[in-house]
């Protein structure tokens, strides 16, 4: 017997908040995104970091020493995993996380003030600049936060906690009329 599995986004049914309305501060939720964990083998931290730094499109999110999330908009999860496993060979463990993680992209002039309600790090660009990323708590939820623009941040969260984080972000953004919608 064959079973058909349908991929369903956990925020389906909650989004869009108000169809067609996009405020200056906006929460964009990509429907599909390739997310892969790369963990350097023992003693290979610098070698793996050097290889990852040469890649152009997929963006790199620091998780901890010798561990990264690699995120790509254009590649499929399988494609990204395969190409990373190929270039990194024996130096790292590469694992597809695309089904287990959700990306939320927050942008607008007030994003720092919105995030400051849930995040305990300094988000000033001189401290947390473009390309910076870190695992941290947003409220009670573990996220990977990255600065992807001057006024743009991406949060990567476990699929099972996406609704919780989405509700928190809505509340944090309410004073700025934060809007939310899917993209891609």
């Amino acid at each position: 017997m064959t079973k058909t599995y349908i991929s369903r986004h956990p925020l389906e049914g909650r989004i869009p908040l108000e169809p067609g309305i996009r405020a200056v501060d906006h929460l964009e939720v990509p429907r599909r995104q390739a997310i892969v964990t790369v963990m350097a083998a023992d003693g290979e931290d610098t070698a793996v970091a050097a290889v990852l730094a040469t890649m152009s499109e997929p963006s790199l999110r620091c998780v901890g020493p010798g561990e990264w999330l690699v995120v790509s908009q254009s590649e499929t999860p399988e494609g990204l995993q395969r190409s990373l496993a190929l270039v990194l060979a024996e130096t790292a463990y590469v694992l597809d996380q695309s089904d287990g993680r959700i990306v939320l992209r927050l942008s607008g002039p007030n994003v720092r003030r919105i995030l400051a309600k849930g995040v305990a790090i300094d988000l000033h660009p001189s401290v947390f600049g473009l390309g910076a990323a870190s695992n941290l708590l947003c409220g009670h939820v573990n996220v990977n936060l990255a600065r992807t623009g001057e006024n743009e941040f991406e949060l990567i969260v476990m699929r099972s906690l996406a609704e919780s984080l989405f509700d928190d972000l809505r509340l944090m953004g309410r004073e700025f009329d934060l809007s939310a919608d899917f993209s891609g």
Binding site: G64, P65, A120, I121, S134, N135, L136, L137
Partner: peptide
């Protein structure tokens, strides 16, 4: 030493 100053709730 890896992440900088963080609240103790993260630990």
């Amino acid at each position: 030493p890896h992440c900088g100053v963080r609240p103790s709730q993260e630990f």
